[in-house]
Design a protein around this nucleic acid. Structure first.
Lengths: 191, 191
DNA sequence: GTCTATACCAGGATAGAC
DNA sequence: GTCTATCCTGGTATAGAC
């Protein structure tokens, strides 16, 4: 359906250039229709943005969080990191989309954080609280998301540095190093 | 001087809204002059952007990296994290400016990474290499920067979540938790 | 150095025919 | 649902007077 093509093109553009980085005209051209046809499917750029974010979150819920089976909170978080690494490796635009939201200071961001990303954060937080004292759980949750996001969203910029060529971006490698850093601190705090 | 006023206003705008998020008209209005007067000082928006980044990097070199005295690489990195936390606390736009650069995929970013941020990364990397095996040094360096950046640049977005109210954003607290996470992994790897 | 005025094009969005 | 044509605003940038 055309609506889906608009959504997926918009997703790529929002990820690459951010909300203000491209025009509805550019989007329409890439989709292969006139700008006004786009407006027939979405009320405007903002509505399109929210729709993209909602679709992305739904995909994550289905492909990442669904059916995580684990005997302990630690296993659950470990599995989550592994799946996220795979998912973000398969969808390189994901981390960038989220980072744009985090940087955006408009009202859009509040909406998206509360209604779209909140469940994810709660999911991690719940498990983290079972592993470390309450006052550290939120920080470690932030660190977990921060490291994962940074690994992926900073990739383009860091590729400008010669040293970066040595780093492996295989999902397994990313997952392993992020988890190593986080679990090390978790263990320290849970003693 | 007027040039300085333009620079500092531009810095605030780039930090808050990103490269595409505001217009030269808006900037000129905030500075209190006409748009064409701004063009008399800077060749264009891009030149202004590069000038802001250069000024910021210079400030960091002077206020953060200068005169770090430490007996060991570990002490040096610890001191760096502490100073960065203070600096970023005093200049809330810093982390956001850097994040915009990291997200930007235009040629500007390559220029800035190589000529502006490279020395900083080298500085950390040198010390990290003395603490952990070479193959982990670059990753830990990225994690260190990633955690610091995330702590500050994600602050607005996370403030939309009710849990965030419990988190302290005192420089000491930020510094302590970032360092805790990083040093824990460093110690594990250096054994 | 700063201004007014303006060029020129691109921005989001809409009207109305088909 | 899609198009052409268009509205209006605002984008970067420049010319030329003071």
């Amino acid at each position: 359906m055309n609506r889906e093509r608009i959504l997926s093109t918009a997703r790529a553009l929002f990820a690459e250039k951010g909300f203000d980085g491209f025009s509805m005209r550019e989007l329409a051209q890439q989709v292969g229709m006139s700008p006004s046809s786009v407006y027939n499917h979405f009320a405007g750029k903002e509505a399109l943005y929210l729709a993209v974010m909602e679709a992305v979150a739904q995909q994550i819920r289905a492909e990442v969080y669904q059916r995580i089976e684990a005997n302990t909170p630690e296993e659950a978080l470990h599995e989550l990191v592994a799946r996220k690494a795979v998912f973000m490796g398969d969808h390189p635009d994901m981390a960038r989309l989220v980072q744009w939201v985090l940087l955006d200071t408009s009202e859009r961001t509040r909406t998206i954080m509360q209604s779209v990303w909140r469940p994810e954060i709660e999911w991690v937080l719940d498990r983290m609280r079972q592993l470390v004292p309450d006052e550290h759980a939120l920080i470690l949750t932030h660190h977990l998301f921060g490291l994962l996001l940074h690994e992926f969203s900073g990739r383009f910029a860091f590729s400008a540095l010669p040293e970066a060529a040595q780093v492996s971006y295989e999902s397994d490698a990313v997952s392993a190093r992020v988890w190593s850093t986080v679990i090390c601190r978790i263990r320290e705090l849970s003693q």
